[in-house]
Design a protein around this nucleic acid. Structure first.
Length: 599
DNA sequence: GTAGGGTTAG
C-alpha cells in the first residue's frame, strides 16, 4: 500500500531530480557522452515479408522444385514476424504441392503451433519428427515448454523440463529463459523464482553449467517487479551483477518501474542516478515510466518538469509520453493544461496519434464537457485522421451520461460510415445506456437482434440488460434471461448474482433473494462481499436487522472482509435499530480493527 | 535455415 508520506517523498524526489541545477549539470555531462560499457541489445533487422513471400511463391512454382531446405528461410522469416496463420497457410500450400518440410521446417511449424496456443499440434509435429526417424533436440523441447506455459499448463511445462533432463538432454540459457519467462507471464512468479534457484544451485543435476545472460535475468526481474516482490527483485539484480552481468537501461528500467509502482521513490531515484553515474542514458521508456509514476501520484507539475528535462537532454518524447501526461492532467481536472499540452503537441507538426485525441476526449467526457469532446471528434475528421472504436465508445458513454440518447443513437449509426465496427464494449455501452435512459425496449431490441445475428454476447452485456430489467420491475423477464445464461454458454458473475438479488429485494421478494443466495452458497461458488452486501442492504431496507446480523456473522465465519459498503449498511442498521450494537461487537472480524477496512 | 528476447499508457 502506498502511503501518503511515500507519495510526498516521491514528489520531493522528483522535484529534486528536475530542479537541482548541479545535478542537472552533472547529468548533462554524463548523458552527453556515449555509454562506456554499452552492449546494446540489437533488435533483429526488420524482415521484408513481401520479399519472403514472393521468394516462397516463386519456389513453389518452380519445376522441378528447389531443395526442400531452401523453403526454410522464407518460412522462418514469416514465423519471426509472428504471422502464425500465414506460416500454417504456407505449409498447407507446400503440402498441396507434395512438398514435405525437412527437420528444420518441421521445427518452424512446431514452434508456430506452440506460439499460437496450439501446443497439442506442436506435440503432434514432434510425433511426425519421430516417425520420420529424426530425434527431437533441446530446441524441440524449448518450443514445447513455451507452448505449455502459454496455455497455462505450468505443471506440464515443469514436468517436461524435468523429464528431458532425466532423459539426458541439456537445457541451456534459452530453455531456462523460456521456462522462467513462461512461468512469470502465466502468473507463477513464485514458481519461476524457485526454478531459478534450483537451476542456479545445481539441484537439477546432469552437470548443468549455469551460464545465464542479461535477457534471462531481465525476464525474471520483470516478473518479480510486476508482482511487487521488490526485495526479491533487488536481490536478483545484485546476484546478476555479482555474476559480472552488468545491468543495461532495460534492466534498470524494470527495477525502477517496480520501485515506482511500489511507492519507493527513494529507491527509484537512487537507481536512476546510479544508472546515469554509470553512463547509461535513460531512454524514452525510462522517462515515460517516471512521468507515469508522477502522474499517478497526482504530481503533474513534476511530471511536466520531467518532460521538459528529457527534451533538454535531447531525448525525444513519443506519443506515450504525451498521452501519459495528458491523461494525468485530465485526471486532475486540469483540462486547460491538458489543452495547452495538446496544442503544443499539435504545433510540433508531427502526425498526431488518434489515441492522443482519445485521451483528451475522455478527459472532457469525464468532466462533463461533451461539447469540447464532440468538437475534438470533428477535429479528428477534419484533420484527416480516422477515429477508432475507442473514440466512439468514449463519446457514446458521454452522450448517455448526459442523457442525450438521440445524439448517442445518431453517433452509433454513423460508425459504419467511418469504417469502424462496434466491439463488444460498444454493445455493452449501448445496452447500459438505453437501460439507464428509460429505453429498456430499445435495449431489449438490440440484445435480441445481436443474439439473432449469432453475435456472441458476453456476461457483461447480459448483466446490463438484467440490471435494466430488474430496475424496471420486470423480474419475470430478468429471471428468464438469468436462467438462459447456461444455454448462452455464459456463467453468471458475482455481479450477475448481485443484480438478481438486488432485483428481488427492490421488488419486495426477499424470500426469492434469499433462495438465490442459498443456491449460490450451496453450489460451492465463493460468494463475494458484494453479494453479501446486496442481500444485507435488502434486509436492512426491509427492516429486518436479524437477518443482516446473521449474514454478518456468516461473513465473519469465513473471514470475508467487509468493505466500505458493508460499513454503510452497519451504520444504517445501528441508527435505526436499538439493541444490536452489543451483538455486533461479538462478530469477530468486525470487532478486529486490523482486519476491517472501512475507508 | 529451427528455441528464450527483456522496461513505458489506456
Amino acid at each position: 500500500m502506498v502511503s501518503t508520506t511515500r507519495a510526498r517523498e516521491a514528489a520531493c524526489a522528483a522535484t529534486a531530480l528536475v530542479s537541482a541545477n548541479s545535478q542537472k549539470a552533472k547529468l548533462s555531462t554524463i548523458m552527453a557522452s556515449p555509454p562506456p560499457n554499452s552492449t546494446p541489445f540489437t533488435k533483429p533487422p526488420k524482415i521484408d515479408l513481401t520479399q519472403a513471400l514472393k521468394e516462397f511463391n516463386k519456389m513453389l512454382q518452380t519445376q522441378p522444385p528447389p531443395p526442400i531446405s531452401s523453403f526454410n528461410a522464407p518460412l522462418a522469416a514469416v514465423a519471426r514476424a509472428k504471422k502464425h496463420q500465414d506460416v500454417i497457410f504456407m505449409f498447407n500450400q507446400m503440402a498441396g504441392a507434395d512438398l514435405f518440410p525437412d527437420y528444420i521446417g518441421m521445427h518452424i511449424l512446431l514452434n508456430c503451433y506452440c506460439d499460437s496456443r496450439r501446443v497439442g499440434l506442436g506435440f503432434a509435429v514432434m510425433g511426425v519428427i519421430l516417425k520420420k526417424g529424426y530425434n527431437p533436440n533441446i530446441v524441440t523441447f524449448t518450443s514445447l515448454i513455451k507452448g505449455l506455459c502459454i496455455e497455462d499448463r505450468v505443471g506440464d511445462a515443469l514436468s517436461l523440463f524435468r523429464k528431458i533432463i532425466a532423459m539426458g538432454f541439456y537445457p541451456n540459457v534459452k530453455t531456462w529463459g523460456t521456462l522462467v519467462n513462461g512461468l512469470c507471464r502465466s502468473g507463477n512468479v513464485g514458481i519461476a523464482l524457485r526454478v531459478h534457484r534450483e537451476i542456479r544451485d545445481g539441484d537439477v543435476g546432469c552437470g548443468l553449467r549455469f551460464n545465464p545472460n542479461l535477457i534471462y535475468y531481465c525476464c525474471l526481474l520483470d516478473g518479480l517487479a510486476k508482482e511487487g516482490l521488490l526485495e526479491e527483485a533487488k536481490e536478483l539484480f545484485a546476484e546478476m551483477e555479482g555474476r559480472g552481468i552488468s545491468a543495461d537501461v532495460v534492466a534498470f528500467g524494470t527495477l525502477i518501474d517496480g520501485l515506482c509502482k511500489n511507492g519507493d521513490w527513494e529507491g527509484a531515484k537512487g537507481l536512476f542516478f546510479q544508472m546515469m553515474d554509470r553512463g547509461i542514458r535513460p531512454n524514452v521508456v525510462t522517462f515515460n515510466m517516471l512521468i507515469y509514476a508522477l502522474c499517478r501520484e497526482g504530481k503533474t507539475d513534476e511530471a511536466r518538469g520531467m518532460l521538459d528535462f528529457m527534451v533538454e537532454r535531447g531525448e525525444e518524447p513519443d506519443f506515450i509520453t504525451y498521452n501519459t501526461l495528458l491523461d494525468g492532467y485530465c485526471h486532475e481536472g486540469r483540462l486547460d493544461d491538458a489543452r495547452g499540452l495538446f496544442v503544443m503537441i499539435r504545433n510540433k507538426g508531427k502526425r498526431m496519434e488518434v489515441t492522443t485525441y482519445n485521451v483528451l476526449i475522455n478527459g472532457y467526457r469525464k468532466h462533463h464537457n461533451l461539447e469540447e469532446a464532440m468538437a475534438l471528434f470533428r477535429d479528428i475528421l477534419s484533420e484527416d485522421h480516422k477515429p477508432t472504436v475507442v473514440t466512439f465508445n468514449i463519446l457514446l458513454i458521454g452522450l448517455f451520461q448526459a442523457g442525450n440518447i438521440v445524439a448517442a443513437r445518431d453517433l452509433y449509426s454513423k460508425m459504419e460510415g467511418h469504417g469502424v465496427a462496434p466491439v463488444s464494449a460498444t454493445y455493452n455501452i449501448l445496452l447500459d445506456g438505453f437501460c439507464k435512459n428509460d429505453s429498456l425496449g430499445e435495449a431489449i431490441e438490440l440484445f435480441q437482434s445481436l443474439e439473432k445475428s449469432g453475435y456472441k454476447l458476453n456476461s457483461h452485456a447480459c448483466n446490463c440488460l438484467l440490471d435494466g430489467l430488474c430496475k424496471a420491475g420486470k423480474l419475470d423477464e430478468a429471471c428468464e434471461l438469468f436462467e438462459r445464461l447456461p444455454n448462452m454458454r455464459l456463467a453468471p458473475t458475482p455481479y450477475t448474482y448481485s443484480i438478481m438479488i438486488n432485483g428481488f429485494c427492490k421488488n419486495g421478494q426477499l424470500e426469492k433473494a434469499k433462495n438465490l443466495f442459498l443456491v449460490i452458497e450451496n453450489s460451492g461458488y465463493a460468494s463475494d462481499v458484494a453479494i453479501f452486501n446486496t442481500l444485507m442492504r435488502g434486509y436492512c431496507n426491509n427492516n429486518d436487522p436479524a437477518n443482516v446480523v446473521d449474514l454478518l456473522q456468516k461473513m465473519a465465519n469465513r473471514t470475508l472482509l467487509p468493505d466500505s459498503y458493508t460499513a454503510t449498511i452497519v451504520v444504517d442498521l445501528l441508527s435505526k435499530t436499538e439493541g444490536y450494537s452489543e451483538f455486533l461487537k461479538l462478530i469477530p472480524n468486525f470487532s478486529d480493527k486490523d482486519r476491517v477496512k472501512m475507508t
